[in-house]
Design a protein around this nucleic acid. Sequence first.
RNA 1: GGAGAGGUCGCAUAGUGGCCUAGUGCAGCGGUUUACUAAACCGCCAUAUCGCAAGAUAUCGUGGGUUCAAAUCCCACCCUCUCCGCCA
Length: 414
Amino acid sequence: MLDIKFIRENLELCKQAAVNKNRVVDWDALLTLDEKRRELIGKAEVLRAERNEVSRTRTDEGVARGKAIKDELKAIDENLRQAEEQFAAAMLTIPNVPDASVPVGKDETGNVEVKKWGEPTKFDFAPKDHIDLAKSLDLIDFERGAKVGGSRAYFLKNEAAQLEVALMFYTLMKLSGKGYTPLIAPSLAKEFAFFGVGQFPWGREEVYALPKDDVYLSGTAEVPVTAYYSDEMLSEKDLPKKFVAFSPCFRREAGSYGKDTRGVYRLHQFNKIEQVIISTAETNNSLTLHEELLANSEGILQDLKLPYRVLLMCTGDMGEPQVKKYDIETWMPGRNAYGETMSDSFMGDFQARRLKLRYKAKDGAVKFCHTLNNTAVASPRILVAILENYQQADGTILIPDVLRPLMGKNVISR
RNA sequence: GGAGAGGUCGCAUAGUGGCCUAGUGCAGCGGUUUACUAAACCGCCAUAUCGCAAGAUAUCGUGGGUUCAAAUCCCACCCUCUCCGCCA
């Protein structure tokens, strides 16, 4: 959410930001509601001031006037309540303004590759995709997954199951060692948290709802962890707060029914470790932290010796809440392409405003925090890259060096 | 699922219709003193909205209601904690 004062004072900037993000906003409706509500607030306050004064007199005339004011106020308050409600709903639909360093573009074709690490793996044999590899080595059971859990469900089996746990453990320990507080976060979260991070109102279709219990299944630990300090007042001296959070993630994948239906690239349920930072409202510092999150994720991929590239997302391919976003794509031989494995976002105070996540600055001023997050590792998608890049001519799969101590073996074979 | 207790400024607490313009303590900020630190003392210090400002208004879990007037009385709901039951 933006500050309405900021919108009033920077209307053209906000309008252009929405256009660049391909979002349609009814600015006139928003500003009309804003004016209406301010006018009603003014009227109500004048009446309340008079009522307060009059009721102190405790005279018959005062009581009579008080009664009259009471009726007037009732009508105004009802109108004000409606206006505030509509205004608040409209405010929730305003997208955030991208940073000046973000390229303007319509869609993914406008993204800019800013870094490439390693080269796409070359094979002196015909490589298999992860589906064939998984079947021949009995690593993933798609058929029984679908039988039991429906479309896009799966069982990780044997070394695939061990590999996922090893990856999660490796990542959690590595980032804990860098001062990130480890968390295992709830996957169930209340509606306010989804509005808070900006998944609602836009992404409702993507989220599993459990209406009977009034909770939702989150698709990322960003939701619970960013909301961790919601409604709280932090101290500047305690910032930034850095978290590395494990959670099972759930996504409906509505609108992508025909996409990536084979394999474990796009799933309804997976496990992920997410980095979340809550920091001060200093954009330059936040941009530095944004790079730190990127470097952390790159470090994981470099440890795993997986070729990847970093894309700076253009305005048209970033979400409503983001100020700046990088995607990391990892080489996946089965796709003969890079596939997204991590997503590194800086939100400014957009989420903090929605979550009432504030801090007291050293000078005593109360400010909204800045929030950032980035994937540390998401599995099984990362297994696609590991299985495919590490396959050998004899059909076996080498295990990345850093995971061998955890796996107790060097190679997957049957 | 059942029973009970409770939700007040960053934290802790006081507050049972008008003296609440929400008090006090702690923390925080500034200062005096000090070789330094601590202590002591002095001052400042909730948030939001509207307003150029002076200031006004609102906020005591949320929403209704009673009243000229509600943190305070009434109703509903939400949340937290404790205990019992069930249970990985």
